[in-house]
């Protein structure tokens, strides 16, 4: 996306758009999330709302709501990148946090995670000399301190749906799941192969098997998530 507005469509640079709806203080409300519910992936899925294609300007977009977290993802591209010849497309991720809860460092970490995930998955060779931009808009967050990586897993799922909506070729559906206890998010493709892994807690793994169990559990959950994503996609037909 260009920041240069040569056609003067957006008006002066310091113009602030009108905002309707919740102010940021209201959207920061913290609904209580039951920890038992975090364990029950099926009930989470039944509470998730997804819609695609809402942003007509973008090549693809998705909107996802779950338990006070609202995310919208829009995909722009593939579009030309001038300069030296590139055989593969380059991916580029931006996260815009309307609630102003995500710190800059974490913002970069999220972007990096999404970028790593999807460079693995997008069929990059199909789009030479071009770039794909992923814009993530976080509209509302529920209990960020505890569930920040839950948010990341939701962002990743929303991005998958948006990419599919855009018609950009991807080798498989990425489904991400989150483990509260170890503060881990893992993104899976195919039969439980991992494209993204992020674990950040002060937990000490005395036994390597503990981590294995987390991977197994998240792998099982991700299959359920994947199936429901497929169900959603196929229901459009």
């Amino acid at each position: 996306m260009s920041t240069l507005d040569r056609r003067r469509i957006l008006g002066p640079a310091n113009v602030k758009p009108l905002i309707f709806g919740l102010s940021s203080s209201q959207s920061k409300q913290e609904n209580k999330i039951e920890e038992e519910e975090e364990e029950d992936i099926n009930s989470q899925i039944s509470k998730t709302f997804i819609k695609t294609g809402l942003i007509t300007n973008a090549n693809g977009s998705s909107y996802l709501e779950y338990n006070g977290n609202i995310i919208s993802v829009s995909i722009y591209g593939p579009r030309p990148v001038r300069g030296t010849f590139t055989e593969k497309t380059s991916l580029d991720v931006h996260l815009d946090d309307n609630t102003e809860t995500i710190s800059d460092l974490l913002n970069k970490k999220f972007c990096n995670y999404i970028e790593n995930n999807f460079t693995t998955v997008i069929n990059l060779n199909k789009y030479p000399k071009s770039g794909i931009s992923i814009f993530i808009n976080v509209l509302s967050i529920n209990n960020f301190q505890k569930y920040k990586y839950k948010l990341l897993s939701l962002i990743s799922d929303a991005t998958t749906i948006a990419l599919i909506n855009s018609g950009i070729e991807i080798i498989d559906i990425v489904s991400s799941t989150f483990d509260l206890n170890s503060n881990t998010v893992i993104s899976f493709i195919k039969s439980n192969e991992i494209v993204g892994l992020l674990s950040d807690s002060n937990k000490i793994y005395k036994d390597v098997n503990d981590f294995n169990k987390i991977i197994k559990k998240l792998g099982n959950d991700s299959n359920i998530v994947k199936n429901s994503l497929i169900n959603y996609l196929m229901s459009g037909n």
Binding site: S90, I189, K190, I194, L198, K203, Y205, F211
Partner: peptide, 28 residues
């Protein structure tokens, strides 16, 4: 003991592939 971070990182541009979970455990 093993601690966080346990993360995957991009080591090159555009050649990345998915990892089998066993390999993560073996690396750990």
């Amino acid at each position: 003991n093993i601690i966080s971070p346990i993360e995957n990182v991009k080591l090159n541009d555009g050649n990345s592939k998915s990892i089998k979970p066993e390999l993560i455990i073996k690396s750990i």
